[in-house]
Write a protein that binds this DNA or RNA. Structure first.
Lengths: 161, 161
DNA sequence: CGATCTGCTTGCGGTTTGCAACCAGTGATC
DNA sequence: GATCACTGGTTGCAAACCGCAAGCAGATCG
């Protein structure tokens, strides 16, 4: 369990934080799917994560400061939330998603979110991060006129079915 | 070695292509360190990759279309080159690096490249990608007045020693 | 000929993975 | 008050993978 960094390189630091087969996908589901509970993440997983792996990754991500766990007693729904650090992964997700849809085969249904995020650019990413801070960090919601990014993502996803 | 995708999600596609402990670091060394040969990558690795892992990752990356291998006979220096797909990872590296240096402990020496890349923004990334296409894909070099991005990265790195 | 370089390969013990079953606590229903 | 479904997980186990260390064949150098 040594968490000593292999090097002081920022890229390596990022890889060590979430550079495995599952961590980033768990974060994706919390961030874009708004899945906040264990069973929700387990059952809703597009890729079919196993429960022991999910449990392990949640622990790791909490330890790494990328998730927080609202610790209620045993047997009651515990909620996982993003942190400022993981909210700041939005641009990373956007770039990864854009790369994936350009250079790998993807399915229409799952592609729409990445497309919308790529098309929106940094302004949209900032708007989305602000929304995530409201939902996950409890920041006060600012006044808004149109639908939020989350709603637009959900609408695009629903329209692609 | 089933390369069947777990899902059609672009993020998952990216994770499956280079979402492990080493693939991205190998690409980083080829891209930013201009290390093109096996022993170069092995000896120059900041994180100390093992030779069998390096061999495996090089094979995988070639298979995934993220590297090409100029196959000379056995016993002679084979050169690895980036492909268009991996050159397009520059924005991903930039965002990952920026996240890493903001949210993880890093060392000054290894931080400068990420800082320069983050500060330069998309215009600099495009310029860098154009340079990589010259070096790795053999595109004709355009006329330039100042030093290239690669030179500036190297200079910043050298200055931080 | 020997030393050194090239890109790897092999052995091996330890770790991780992923499937499946299981578990204790809680709250609602019968 | 017993059953039931739901909560977030744990446990066993076989198979795969990881990383360290050593070795290897072909080419080049002196």
């Amino acid at each position: 369990m040594g968490d000593s960094a292999r090097s002081g390189c920022p890229i390596n630091a990022a890889v060590e934080a979430f550079g495995d087969s599952w961590s980033l996908l768990v974060l994706r589901d919390v961030m874009f799917g708004n899945r906040r509970h264990f069973r929700e993440l387990l059952a809703g997983s597009e890729e079919g994560i196993a429960s022991n792996i999910l449990a392990d990754r949640l622990k790791r991500l909490v330890k790494a400061g990328l998730l927080t766990r609202e610790d209620v007693g045993p047997g009651r729904r515990a909620a996982y939330s993003l942190t400022e650090a993981s909210i700041r992964l939005v641009p990373v997700f956007a770039q990864l998603g854009e790369w994936g849809l350009r250079h790998r085969p993807t399915t229409e249904r799952l592609r729409v979110r990445a497309e919308l995020l790529a098309a929106g650019g940094p302004e949209l990413w900032d708007e989305f991060m602000a929304e995530l801070r409201v939902v996950h960090l409890g920041e006060p919601a600012p006044e808004r006129d149109g639908p939020g990014v989350m709603e637009r993502l959900a609408a695009a996803y629903a329209a692609a079915l």
